[in-house]
Amino acid sequence: MGFLNRLDDPFNAEGIILGKVEDLLNWGRARSDWYLSFGLACCAIEFMAVNASHFDLMRFGCIPRPSPRQADFIIISGTVTMKMAERIITLYEQMAEPKYVLSMGSCANSGGPYWEHGYHVLKGIDRVIPVDVYVPGCPPKPEAFLDGIVKLQKKINQQAIFKKRAKLAEEEKIIVND
């Protein structure tokens, strides 16, 4: 678990611990995931149930943001149609890096029940934007969804952000201030 584990074994007294800044940052990022509140179809109702009293998503540090510019990750909860796909691309592009995508339900994963004859259904959101975590189910149970959130946090925890930044700077994708 990176940073926090080191607290168990601090350098004797005075609470000095050695750790990587990266771990500290990742720890903070993973536990304050803000998501874009965004509902598409039936899965969104289960997602609402996850938000409400019984399952309480906020204990994972997930807070809904209505604007993509303030969000860390987006939950694609439901069927994506051709008409909607372009809007989702726009929303995704408006989000600030680093950003993550959680695909909830069979529809977003692969087209789900609308796989075969759905002339107006996008067969999987990964055809238009990259996906980090897939949660299967139609609709996924709230427990399954929470598991997806934990998976996402694990992924964030393991990321080498400084390396990535250096690489991106090399490719001139981002500008690193000195």
Partner: peptide, 29 residues
């Protein structure tokens, strides 16, 4: 139409018992 999932097209391709799950997904509440 942002959630147009081709329900009526599907019904013409599915046998009667198979239509029921798609009907569930109309008013999913």
């Amino acid at each position: 139409g942002y959630l147009h999932r081709c329900f009526e097209k599907y019904c013409e391709q599915m046998q009667y018992p198979q239509v029921i799950p798609y009907i569930d997904r109309l008013d999913y509440i």
